[in-house]
Design a protein around this nucleic acid. Structure first.
Lengths: 192, 192, 192, 192
DNA sequence: CATGAATGAGCGTTCATTCAT
DNA sequence: GATGAATGAACGCTCATTCAT
């Protein structure tokens, strides 16, 4: 690293705050105090503001990171050579596995989804991250039952099936595999 | 009017508070202050507590009322003689019409849905209100593509399609009819 | 009663408020709300202000009445022919009997004693009511062990013995008679 | 000073709050607002809660501190070799001197004495502080005029004489010495 | 850069008092 | 006169943010 370069401060600490925020949001909602998050992260309340300018800033960065994580987890191992259904199922399964492995992150994300603090810029960045997935979905849609439907309603319906399946998987993890399969089949009936 | 009768509690005022709460929740989230709600309703901050014991109480009553409204709007004109698809489509259309006509109520409801203030009792009462709809949906499910799926995942998927369609209708009201149709068809492919 | 004379409104209701105030002060302190007192009295919160201009006004009148009651109870049956010790014992016993019979009144009085709401005027009126007792005490003092002490310290000491005995009688009513006797003997050693 | 050490909690500030509380309680009673106390202490209202978790907590700590102060002032210079009367007079004089020097503290203490905010734990701690004095008093009592009286009435009578004398000393400080002497003589007649 | 005390606006709620009915 | 809804100032307390150490 070059001298004089802006130090990224401690990435460990930044991550600790992020992880603490997830836990505290899950247990106390978005109204959780920054002090509580700092404490959970093992740092002083003041230090939190060395890493994030404001609480809203923390929430935006956290939201983006959670979505980025899930996005790359979902796309892992995807092969463009496979047929669309195979790719889609692969992505779907990745997604569900991730959600099952990180239920807290999913829960925090669900809260942040409805927060007024998340800016349009963040939402746009999230959207951009998911571009490959959206492309895949669009390709699928344009050849299947929804080929004539506008993209917005199609996207909304599909996303909603993803999320509903995920939430069921988290709430009833014992039957995760079965729920995932049921969800995918419904999904494929809708879009395939 | 009886002698010794003071100004009675005004239903108009109660409604004004409810409506104000909807507007303020939409624009400022569940963190909206009771003072802001009272001001929007055109009453003093203290008066709000004449009509609702606590902020949580207001939120619970509001949630129940919104859900009850939408529930009865949805069931209006339903005829048990029709075949299931016709009944389901009728309900679906009612629901979407209501959502399109009251977008703010829908948005407030979405926020209240995830609020910690809503008690299990309120959720149970809401559930009870929607019993006829749930029965109809269960009957449909048990004869269609999801006949072998457990109820929890089925319910989650179906609800999610409702909500996704509704939100699209609200966000793009110009094409409300078309979105409603697209959503219903997807819905029917999933459950029918 | 003459026509046009200011009606004392309902004395029953006034008394009901007074009695309710005693009970509520005992159980909830001087911070008790006027609404709570009104409810205990079986009237509406607004009506309380027909009988008392302010909460402080109620407290002042109540204090005066409680002190007046105890004053006259104490003096009942006193014969100026008896020697001082006999008169004093008689008064003392009356006082203790009253306190034992009305422990709530005593407790409310104790609270009002330290209230900032009680005006100097009320305190003066109370003092005036107790004049015969004070005279008796002064006569006793001027012939006994405190004959050379200034009146203020003497009065304070004597009052304090009264009150301490009373409070013990109320807290341990089973031994009321014995405590009363012990207290009087101490009192007589001080002043007699 | 260690690195990373922030501004430490200031004992000066804590004391300022305590002293401010005494002054404000004297002038406005126990209903005094925390904001008023903070202002009188020259700090922000929020800062008060850095030093005391709740208003009741402040009151409890204040009460304990006032009582501890007076307790140690009273016991200062006491010699177990002296006869009981000498020891008792020494304590009595200390006490009166302290009260005369700190009339506001005495007044605040009198208010806190009757506060519902003071917990049994605090009262127990106060009692423990005063143990030597109580022991001395018990020894005296058991040899004197009240040797056959139960402890509760004896304690109440004695305490009441202390307090009555103190209050007179404060209200009429010009004759403090004389009042103190008068009070002690009465006290000794009661217990000695 | 870390710390945690300091700040003060803001919150939900209470309550003495007023006044329309 | 009786009623209780209406009022708004006040309260205890929290918390995002700043800044002295």
């Amino acid at each position: 690293m070059l001298k004089g370069m802006a130090r990224p401060k401690s990435n460990d600490k930044r991550n600790a705050i992020m992880n603490a925020a997830v836990r505290v949001i899950v247990s106390h909602g978005l109204g959780a105090s920054t002090a509580a998050i700092a404490k959970e992260a093992g740092i002083s309340n003041g230090s939190l503001f060395t890493y994030f300018q404001t609480k809203a800033d923390l929430f935006n960065q956290l939201y983006l990171e959670l979505k980025t994580d899930i996005s790359s987890a979902t796309l892992k191992g995807l092969s463009a050579n496979d047929d669309l259904r195979t790719q889609m199922l692969h992505a779907w399964t990745n997604w569900m596995d991730y959600a099952a492995a990180h239920p807290e992150k999913r829960r925090a994300m669900a809260q942040l989804n409805v927060s007024d603090d998340i800016t349009p810029e963040t939402r746009a960045a999230v959207y951009k991250n998911m571009a490959p997935l959206i492309t895949l979905m669009e390709k699928t849609r344009s050849q299947g039952a929804m080929k004539d439907a506008p993209a917005n309603i199609a996207g909304a319906l599909i996303t909603s099936l993803f999320e509903a399946t995920m939430d069921t998987v988290i709430q009833d993890p014992v039957h995760a595999r079965s729920h995932s399969k049921t969800g995918f089949e419904a999904f494929w009936r809708v879009i395939g």
